[in-house]
Design a binder for these strands. Structure first.
Length: 482
RNA sequence: GCGGUCAUAGUAUAGCCUGGUUAGUAUGUUGGCCUUCCAAGCCAAUUACCCGGGUUCAAAUCCCGGUGACCGCACCA
């Protein structure tokens, strides 16, 4: 299935759509989730909590989206989350200053260098616009963080460009009050904000987007954690073009240690359960130039879609970059006691893009069933926005009332959807399209023996189920995997 | 940000070149009739010219500007 089909489904069936549609000057890069999208997202996050947060005994927090300027001085975002750009006065093309200079005469200036250095090199060498040979304006920095003003004085603060900074800043309190013991994971789900130059492709490149981040604080001397690795030793990873178990990946040096292998393992098991095709997924180790400024080792979890490979999760070993930075800037201690050792913990993170993950789930789940002339969103039942359709075969003879009663008995526990209108086949098709895995239909026999037909989405098979068994049957079918 | 293409109902489209129609069609949606399990049929209703300015007696149509989308470049923790 392709991008166009997915976005069409998203627009038509209330998964997601552009923000502020009524206003024609609304900027790009902002999208909203409709009812089916929210329901899918909630269930995806419930799976995430089950498979990662609860499985590993992590803590979850919910931090502020607006954070003090100091936080981003310490984190390096003010200096490094920005590109030096230079603009042509004549044709107003904009270039990355460091790259343009390198291409023009081979001078390598680090992108984090002082802006004057760029201007000096441009001036001395008489570098002109590579496109039109026009003169170049002064180099300036484009920071991708949204700056905002707090209070009447408009004091500088920023919308967070990643959710994890509050995890780092909160770490000492969490560790003390929640009886922390290394290694300990802290997780957070929420919005992050980046002022992308050109947002594209709906959920895939947003200016305001959801992240689910996990930061695992660990003792750098204790990364050969064989006991943990045992739990996922046989999980097969597709990594750098090999299919290899977690255990073998460590032994062959593909993964640096048991600790990281364990987390990569549970992450892989989580994604397996989302319905994203594992044959179209891979882990990829990033080279020196691709890595983020804080990472010493980095793996991306990537998924192949009809518009290419998408990065869904960035797994970074951030060392003590963050806690060290915050300790230095705040003057607070971020060291903790681990056994008889005083350590500044290192951090391994799994930073997940939720919106992109949801897109991949949709694209990998959407099917065209030519034989039955229908579109089916073959979601895992536990992720389906609607669990069960509750339909009356016809409205008359008391069937409507009976159906309403059954619906009311289900709709607190399940995402049930009541529908009396139109031909039964049409109603089944509509449910198929939003991924509803089951439908029960009330017919005249129901009035006699309290049974209904239970129709299964993927096979279209039907069987009769007694109303007294319905709750049990549904709860079995819709349960999250163990 | 740059270049190219484009913008008409929830969705897909006709009409634009050559200005004047009640802005057409399909599908969807809603209500009704019919109907005892897979997009049937019939009746009715419903919904649109991206925004601003200009030209003109008259603009969906021509011109300018803006915004957005798609593709390419660049960018992308």
């Amino acid at each position: 299935m392709n991008y166009d089909k997915v976005i069409n489904l998203a627009l038509e069936r209330g998964f997601y759509f552009p923000s502020c549609e009524a206003y024609n000057n609304s900027p790009a890069g902002f999208w909203e989730y409709g009812p089916n999208g929210v329901s899918l997202k909630n269930k995806f996050l419930e799976l995430w909590r089950r498979e990662l947060v609860r499985r590993d005994g992590m803590m979850e927090i919910d931090g502020s989206q607006i954070m003090a300027k100091s936080v981003f001085e310490a984190s390096g975002h003010l200096a490094s989350f920005a590109d030096p750009i230079v603009r042509c006065v004549k044709c107003s093309s904009t270039f990355r200053a460091d790259r343009m200079i390198a291409e023009s005469n081979g001078t390598i200036i680090p992108e984090s260098a002082d802006l004057k250095e760029f201007d000096e090199v441009i001036h001395k060498n008489g570098i002109l616009c590579p496109r039109c040979q026009g003169p170049l304006d002064k180099t300036r920095k484009f920071n991708m963080m949204f700056r905002i003003g707090i209070g009447p004085e408009g004091e500088d603060a920023y919308l967070r460009p990643e959710t994890c900074q509050s995890i780092f800043v909160d770490f000492p309190r969490l560790y003390k009050t929640m009886r922390g013991k290394l290694p300990v994971g802290v997780a957070q789900v929420g919005k992050s904000f980046r002022n992308e130059i050109s947002p594209r492709q709906s959920l895939l490149r947003l200016r305001e987007f959801y992240q689910a981040e996990i930061e695992i604080f660990c003792n750098p001397d204790k990364l050969h954690d064989t006991a943990r690795l045992e739990r996922v030793r046989d999980v097969v990873l597709h990594i750098d073009n090999n299919d290899i178990t977690c255990k073998d990946a460590v032994e062959n040096g593909i993964l640096p240690n048991e600790f990281i292998a364990y987390y990569i393992g549970i992450l892989a098991e989580f994604y397996q359960k989302t319905g994203i095709s594992m044959e179209k997924s891979r882990f990829r180790q990033l080279g020196e130039k691709e890595k983020a400024f804080y990472a010493s080792v980095a793996f991306d979890f990537e998924v192949e879609t009809t518009i290419g490979w998408l990065e869904l999760v960035a797994c970074n070993y951030r060392t003590d970059y963050d806690l060290g930075g915050h300790a230095k800037h705040s003057g607070e201690s971020f060291q903790v006691i681990d056994g008889d050792q005083k350590v500044l913990p290192h951090v391994f993170e799994m930073s997940m893009g939720i919106d992109r993950s949801l897109y991949c789930i949709l694209e990998h789940s959407l099917m065209e069933d030519e034989n039955n002339n229908r579109t089916v969103l073959s979601l895992k039942p536990y992720l389906a926005p609607r669990h069960v359709g509750v339909l009356s075969l016809v409205k008359k003879d008391g069937l409507r009332e009976k159906t309403d009663t059954i619906y009311e008995s289900l709709n607190r526990k399940y995402d049930a959807f009541l529908d009396h209108a139109g031909a039964i086949g049409r109603r089944y098709r509509r449910l198929d399209e939003v991924g509803c895995p089951f439908a029960i239909t009330v017919d005249h026999q129901t009035l006699q023996d309290d049974t209904v037909t239970l129709r299964e989405r993927d096979t279209m098979n039907q069987r009769r189920v007694s109303l007294s068994d319905l709750d049990y049957t549904l709860s079995e079918y819709l349960a999250f995997p163990v």
